[in-house]
């Protein structure tokens, strides 16, 4: 490889990184990290703390008499939907459901999938082959199709939606965890630990897991968007969070029925979905770039 010419790569980096735009570029880099981080924090606070501190009307059980109130109506800043429920309240409660499901799915993915991947990769051999082939079967399914099938078996509810979504988060994380483990397993310090008589379990928990964790967390961050979108799709199809409980997906579905008359009923939850997914994606990309040392 480049024995004497390590500088060639550097020599070709476009120059505007070094021009007078440097300061602006640095500010922009910082904004790109802090804006999504702030936005995610805001969303979490709004959806999880909001219901307790904001004077929100109930998201369900509204009166038909109040149906279709326009935004700006007293007590209903974003108006009401066809059932007379407060849209803002439904957005926040729906967001809470979406985020709860997304976080739970990712935690399950991390713990179960990460565990399976790490053990499988670390043990290697037959066990590894069998586990990975089994996961291949699950990974082959398009995520929405798989979750629809499982949601049908389990029936619509929040915990069941989480389980259904986990059917694709677990194998996906397991694959990443396995390849990360394989990389780590050949490193000298792991071999040193093994030689010094550390048990397999101990090596796994003390050395392998801490080393693959950052990569897993980063993958989970990028996975948040995917889970939120798929959950929305499931609820949109009436197979996720059962109405009348709000979720962004079923709000979009309800709004769709009066799309031409009150497009805002679709736009609000769509916007909420967009901002949330965008924030998580940006955050995830930044962490990834940071970790790959860019």
């Amino acid at each position: 490889m480049a024995i004497a010419d390590a500088s060639i790569g550097a020599a070709l980096v476009p120059s505007d990184a070094v021009s007078r735009n440097e300061r602006w570029a640095r500010i922009r880099r910082r904004l790109v990290v802090w804006v999504p981080a702030g936005s995610v924090t805001f969303l979490l606070l709004l959806c999880f703390v909001g219901p307790f501190v904001l004077p929100l009307p109930s998201p369900i059980g509204g009166s038909v008499l109040d149906s279709g109130l326009p935004p700006g109506t007293a007590g209903h800043p974003l108006g009401t939907d066809v059932n007379g429920n407060d849209v803002l309240s439904r957005l926040i409660y729906g967001g809470r459901a979406s985020l709860t499901i997304a976080i739970a799915t990712n935690v399950i993915g991390l713990v179960v999938g990460g565990g399976i991947g790490a053990v499988s990769g670390f043990l290697g051999g037959k066990a590894d082959t069998v586990i990975m082939r089994a996961l291949d079967v699950l990974i082959a399914f398009p995520s929405l199709v798989l979750t629809i099938a499982i949601a049908q078996i389990l029936g619509p509810s929040v915990p069941n939606t989480i389980l259904a979504l986990s059917a694709f988060s677990v194998p996906a994380v397991a694959r990443i965890a396995r390849s990360a483990t394989l990389k780590i397993a050949n490193m000298p310090f792991i071999q040193a630990a093994e030689l010094s008589g550390s048990t397999t379990w101990r090596t796994l928990t003390r050395h392998v897991v801490p080393n693959i964790t950052p990569q897993m967390l980063n993958f989970a961050l990028l996975g948040m968007g995917i889970v939120i979108v798929t959950e929305g799709a499931l609820s949109f199809l009436g197979m996720g969070i059962p109405a009348p409980a709000p979720s962004w997906g079923n709000m979009i579905f309800e709004g769709q029925q009066s799309l031409s008359a009150t497009p805002l009923l679709v736009l609000w939850p769509s916007l909420a979905l967009l901002v949330t997914v965008l924030s998580f994606n940006m955050l995830g990309e930044n962490v990834r770039d940071e970790m790959s040392g860019r």
């Binding site: 979009i252 799309l259 031409s260 679709v266 994606n281």
Partner: peptide
């Protein structure tokens, strides 16, 4: 980056809103 965060069902409804409605 922004459009990538738009789920296809939302994209579908937006397109309907703009081009059909």
């Amino acid at each position: 980056m922004t459009l990538l965060a738009v789920p296809n069902y939302v994209m579908a409804l937006l397109l309907v809103l703009v081009f059909a409605v």
